[in-house]
């Protein structure tokens, strides 16, 4: 499972970066979404994958059992936060790109040189 998710993260980073290197605005956004989710998978995988175990301390115990079959609830919480943040940022980016497209009249990133001189 780890290997599978590691490959998935790698492929998403690669394809996200590839999309960002394209010249079109829309592909830029797709690229940003992809690498954002790739980072979430990295957190998920490196936080440790456990199947079917609860994130709970057994009743009456004061600390975690030494049994490693315990799901860490923190990585999902981190990912949830990251997803909400990226939701806000991506929707801002979509509006920005739309405005930029209306103002500049092209969706070609190579046409946007006027601030780079």
């Amino acid at each position: 499972m780890h290997t599978l998710l590691a490959i998935a993260a790698g492929v998403m980073f690669a394809s996200g970066l590839y999309m960002m290197f394209r010249r079109s605005f829309v592909k830029l956004i797709i690229g940003l979404v992809l690498i954002g989710h790739a980072a979430n998978i990295v957190i998920f995988t490196s936080g440790g994958l456990v199947r079917g175990a609860p994130a709970l301390i057994p009743a009456g115990e004061a600390r975690l059992p030494d049994d490693p079959a315990f799901t860490d609830p923190l990585p999902p919480a981190l990912i949830l936060t990251a997803i909400v943040i990226s939701f806000a940022i991506i929707s801002y980016t979509i509006v920005l790109v739309r405005r930029a497209y209306q103002a500049i009249g092209t969706d070609d990133l190579d046409q946007m040189r006027s601030t780079d001189k």
């Binding site: 940003l32 790739a38 490196s46 936080g47 923190l74 990585p75 940022i89």
Partner: peptide
């Protein structure tokens, strides 16, 4: 800046992993 955020987030994930 979004690219930098993603790298930051990945670094946090890996750091939490170890």
């Amino acid at each position: 800046n979004l690219l930098s955020s993603v790298l930051f987030l990945s670094a946090i994930g890996l750091l939490y992993g170890i």
